[in-house]
Design a protein around this nucleic acid. Structure first.
Lengths: 247, 247
DNA sequence: GATCAGCTTTTGTCTATACAAATAGATACA
DNA sequence: TGTATCTATTTGTATAGACAAAAGCTGATC
């Protein structure tokens, strides 16, 4: 049985992480939470104190508790779910499909993905904009035999990353981050100069042993960064205490 | 008046930081502490829980509480411990201190760090090379009031990142990854061209609410990338900086 | 010797209550 | 109008006590 205070903590945490409660949102006061969870105030207080200690919420007497403004504690997938990220931060996101093509996997790409030559893939090029300014060029491959439902999807209204995130469970992801200079085409699309430093994120996602999707995001270096906070202890890492050395 | 549980917390914390209680040391049990501080068990428990939440101690029923090893969750820190990483991968790593200077925190930097103007800091510039080729330019600030022992350290034999990892426990780290173009100085030091895309990693590490260190690493984009594998539910950590055998 | 049950220590969780401290907002007053 | 004071709300800290859970230890039993 999960302790109550941890249940409260996880409930609130998930609402923060998912964006249901955006930064600045006022969390129910202790009094309301103890009624909802049928527990004592100290129990609620413990949960909220831990969240405050982690920097996920800010607590102020008389005012209440609020979701902290900084994107604290973001999870793996968030690293490039552009639309969600932008919305969480209160920005407007839009995307445009530049190319959508079904083809067979050629040998070069197949090798890079570690998949079989000739597999059917959906190749997508997509341009993302945040607050009306080009923010990322996305080049994606989706394995159609793993995600057959992608065949019928236009991705006009939901960006591919978000769609996949909702549709397909994954068991492993590999990220590579690089800095590259923009070539002429990229520079034009991203509304920047040729040779400008760009941040590239490459990500391959697997389900079991099969690749689900492979994607490259190219971001203009002057408008984009990756950021994340980490707490060493979060996962309850157990470090074996040395026995018998106590004295 | 400082609350009791914070006094207990600070007392224990300072003994851990100072090294009086080394990793693995058994902390007095709650029963002893409540006698020493003349307070209730819940108060002691609160203090110890916070320390456990911060990862400074490990608590185990029946066994007691122990000072945690300083490298909890290595994966997070590995993102930047160049020397360790290089050695693990079988490469030879060297570093050279370019600048080492004690100064007061100016207002611009203080704002960026969220610290008080005028605090004493150690400013370090350091060039890292892997297999004889320049690999990273490190610009670091160490807060001397948080890490007073840094004052006496030359960092000639042990690189600052590794030294801090061994010496100072931390409770939170923030990473920012950016792409920037090399300016003339950076290009010269990194043996690359001016304007070349570089990968910058900025990391700020906290202990409690105090900054321990702030560091920028600038890597040549043609020789470096971050890569890492992730599994769902794991923490979003980019580990294993690998030298770019760009393919 | 092996196994199981019970004992002991230590931390984990929870309750119910109490008073303190911060502070926004309302009210009284100059 | 501006200012000081009061009040209500919400979090912060602390207490004393209770039982649960983990895990090492002991001893009885087969």
């Amino acid at each position: 049985m999960v302790p109550i205070h941890q249940r409260i903590l996880k409930d609130i945490e998930s609402r923060i992480i998912s964006g249901i409660w955006p930064p600045g949102h006022r969390i129910p006061v202790e009094h309301e939470l103890l009624k909802e969870y049928q527990c004592s105030r100290m129990t609620v207080n413990k949960a909220l104190s831990v969240l405050a200690e982690r920097g996920m919420i800010i607590r102020r007497r008389k005012l209440g508790s609020f979701v902290a403004s900084r994107q604290i504690d973001r999870k793996v997938m968030d690293i490039q779910d552009i639309s969600t990220e932008a919305e969480l931060a209160g920005h407007e996101h839009s995307h445009k499909i530049l190319m959508r093509k079904i083809e067979m996997l050629d040998s070069t790409t197949a090798t890079r993905l570690g998949e079989a030559v000739g597999a059917e893939i959906l190749r997508l090029h997509c341009l993302h904009a945040v607050d009306g300014k080009a923010n990322a060029l996305e080049r994606r491959i989706i394995m159609l035999d793993v995600v057959p439902s992608a065949r019928a999807e236009s991705f006009a209204s939901v960006p591919p990353g978000k769609w996949l995130l909702d549709m397909v469970p994954w068991s492993k992801a590999r990220h590579v981050i690089r800095a590259v200079s923009a070539d002429a085409t990229t520079a034009r699309l991203l509304e920047t100069e040729r040779g400008e430093a760009c941040l590239t994120l490459i990500r391959q996602t697997w389900q079991d042993r099969r690749t689900v999707t492979y994607v490259e995001f190219i971001h203009p270096g002057d408008r984009f960064q990756f950021a994340g906070d980490f707490h060493p202890n979060e996962r309850g890492v157990i470090d074996q205490p040395s026995r018998g050395s106590a004295s």
